[in-house]
């Protein structure tokens, strides 16, 4: 009898599936003391393109699903993550995290927090407008569409969830780029895959920031971009590329976002509707 362990193959998460990168490239992941941990996929621009295609397909149905269901699903993610917290703690620690327990707890707390916003931010950000004519006039937030999300570089689970959750609960689909502790990002994808998040609504790529961030900003079928970065040159480059289709850009510091409904609002469009009032 052999006791040899069975290491996991870390792949990408696109359209609810776990494909290898089409480029065949890998990122060698080593632990704190230099020990080999795994070969992760190094996503290419084509992987990103494929992810945007499935994101676009998934966006409509996710946007239309009820707020109640969205809340249920976010809470479900928290539940599944909580059930596997020891695995995440171990994995994060192996990748060099010194506060893995707090990190996982923080991620779970954020998921629960945003789950609760699913059916409340609309009321907060809507208005009935008292126009000076016989019309009923109201403004409501609607999801922006497909979002490119660049998670904080430290790779913490809290950081990943802090950017994913407001975009997700707002009814958008997204492609997330993670760097840093990318093994737990892919393990987190497994959590998403078993939490009733519809395929394609969240896609996670592991790869090199300088290679993929420009692509995230350039793609014409991406409606908005969330970038956590402290690099002024990177931010400027992203803004310049985003101008081409007037992507909405939310620039954030390179760390986990503190919870706020205004992060949800960053990925909403306000639609105003007019209708006459008469008999």
């Amino acid at each position: 009898m052999s006791n040899l362990s069975i290491p996991k193959t870390y792949k990408l998460f696109i359209g609810g599936k776990f494909p290898r990168t089409e480029s065949g490239r890998i990122l060698e992941i080593r632990g704190a003391k230099g020990a080999f941990l795994a070969n992760a996929s190094r996503a290419s621009r084509k992987d990103f393109r494929n992810a945007v295609v499935v994101s676009r397909k998934a966006a409509g149905a996710w946007a239309k699903s009820t707020a109640y269901l969205k809340g249920q699903i976010l809470y479900r993610i928290a539940e599944v993550l909580a059930g596997r917290s020891s695995q995440f703690e171990a994995e994060l620690t192996a990748q060099g995290s010194s506060n893995a327990e707090a990190d996982v707890a923080g991620a779970i707390a954020l998921l629960v927090h945003y789950a609760g916003w699913s059916d409340k931010y609309q009321a907060l950000f809507s208005s009935v407008n008292p126009v000076a004519s016989p019309h009923f006039n109201f403004s409501v937030p609607e999801p922006t569409g497909v979002v490119s999300t660049v998670a904080p570089a430290d790779g913490s689970l809290t950081g990943l969830v802090s950017v994913m959750a407001p975009v997700l609960v707002g009814g958008n689909s997204q492609v997330i780029l993670t760097s840093g502790k990318i093994l737990s990002a892919i393990s987190f994808a497994e959590v998403l895959a078993t939490s009733d998040v519809p395929a394609g609504v969240v896609n996670i790529l592991t790869g090199m920031r300088d290679e993929l961030v420009p692509e995230f900003a350039k793609h014409m079928d991406v409606n908005a971009l969330l970038l956590c970065s402290d690099d002024d040159a990177e931010k400027k480059a992203v803004e310049l590329e985003a101008a081409e289709n007037l992507k909405r850009v939310s620039l954030q510091a390179d760390k986990a976002l503190s919870p706020s409904p205004y992060h949800i609002l960053d990925f909403q469009e306000i639609k105003t509707t007019w209708h006459p009032v008469g008999v």
Partner: peptide
Amino acid sequence: GVVWANTFNKFDPTSPFGGYK
């Protein structure tokens, strides 16, 4: 960003105006 149903080109200072895409 603005949809007029059974009317068109109505504007009011209380009513937000602006576009998608």
